[in-house]
Design a protein around this nucleic acid. Sequence first.
DNA 1: ATGGTGGATGCTCCA
Length: 260
Amino acid sequence: MKLVTWNVNSVRLRLEHLQRLEALWRPDLICLQETKVTDELFPREAFAALGYAHLAVLGMKGYNGVAIASRRPLALVRHQTWCGRDDCRHLIAELDGIEVHCLYVPAGGDIPDPAANDKFAHKLEFLDAVAGWFAGQDAARPMVLVGDFNVAPLPTDVWSHKQMLKVVSHTPVEVERLAALQASLGWIDAVRHFVPPEQHLYSWWSYRAADWAASNRGRRLDHIWVTPPLAPRLARAEILAEARGWQPPSDHVPVMVDLA
DNA sequence: ATGGTGGATGCTCCA
């Protein structure tokens, strides 16, 4: 089973990109974040034409929004809300007995101080709540947790560890929170399973660079994690960096894992 | 130290 996660930054603007992605990787399952569309206006026909007739969508007007597109029928579709907000960040479905979680963690604003920045406080509370919830689940079940986690955990998941320590997405307090979430079920980072920690990896490049590829100041914010029962099935993982150059681009690129 | 861009919306918010 080949599965992809991608923060598309508006699904309606990225339909041709999704067509390219399908042609390139032929994924069985595509998990999307920042769809930025209500469920009524979700472009279902375009997905059906690509072979994804089975959709789970959880969207709102303008902001956030997650979706799961599948070639085969999805079971037990449901969603979760966090921190008392109904803001379309967590969608769940099952395929082939695997429970798939599509998650969009709050970005957290610019100031990395929860006392001065409500968005950063919300991000930390969100990560704590999700970690607490998963800690009560059964790690012996085959589960996949994917999405835009908005945290780059390793020093090599950012272009400069030292210069990013006070930048939201790579501060120690966020990295600790994400580590606690990872520990909740002993989640395995499926991409790092194949790539040594010395090697830099990015899945996001800012729009605010004159030349994203030349400056290459990226961050790895998008992740695919699996529970221990799925570890023996990890066959391949890829980050499609070239998609950052597809016009007009999302600032995130697709991340893929193949489960044997 | 600063500002830089892009998307959805509608005279601004969020990333």
